[in-house]
């Protein structure tokens, strides 16, 4: 998406997280009901991205936890990684995208509403941590690929039907 930059693009997979410094950018592909959460420090030009799948780590029924999978542990984990990279917590801001409902079902099973639930959970965690949410592109029923540039603090969003937009 940022074709003319000299930096590299760091790719983040599903239930993974990473941090980058300008001029590198960070991206994740094929967000459906998952939510991509970007935390960034404009002054330090450092940013982190976590690709979360589930709203809360209390949903986990396994012995070991991959913290990047859940909104609560994922955002907390990303925050800690950013502090190590020299970001200041009071300067951190957030942009988020994803949380779509890819299939419409007449089922009342909670799993089918997982997109909106993920978005709600992310917002709650950001609020608890005192990190302002600057922009979001959430909901709907389209998949998204997103890429964040810590140099400009812009989040590019690509969907199949609507092309590329920026928040």
């Amino acid at each position: 998406m940022f074709a003319s930059k000299e930096g590299k693009v760091v790719k983040v997979g599903i239930a993974q997280m990473d941090v980058v410094k300008s001029p590198d950018t960070i991206r994740t592909s094929g967000l459906g009901s998952c939510v991509g959460v970007v935390l960034y420090d404009e002054t330090k030009k450092v940013a982190g991205l976590v690709h979360i799948m589930l709203p809360d780590s209390s949903l986990s029924r396994s012995e070991t936890i991959n913290c990047a999978k859940f909104a609560d542990t994922g955002i907390q984990g990303l925050l800690e990684m950013l502090l190590v990279e020299g970001a200041q917590k009071y300067r951190l801001k957030a942009k988020i995208a994803g949380g779509a409902q890819m299939f419409q079902f007449a089922s009342d099973k909670n799993m089918m509403r997982i997109g909106p639930r993920n978005v709600e959970a992310v917002k709650k965690v950001l609020k608890e941590l005192g990190i302002p949410l600057i922009a979001e592109d959430t909901g709907g029923n389209s998949g998204r690929t997103i890429e964040f540039d810590p140099d400009t603090s812009k989040l590019m969003i690509r969907t199949v039907n609507k092309g590329v937009s920026e928040i």
Partner: peptide, 9 residues
């Protein structure tokens, strides 16, 4: 749509 967005459900 994108395969990733579909399969993740």
């Amino acid at each position: 749509d994108m395969f990733g967005a579909i399969i993740s459900i």
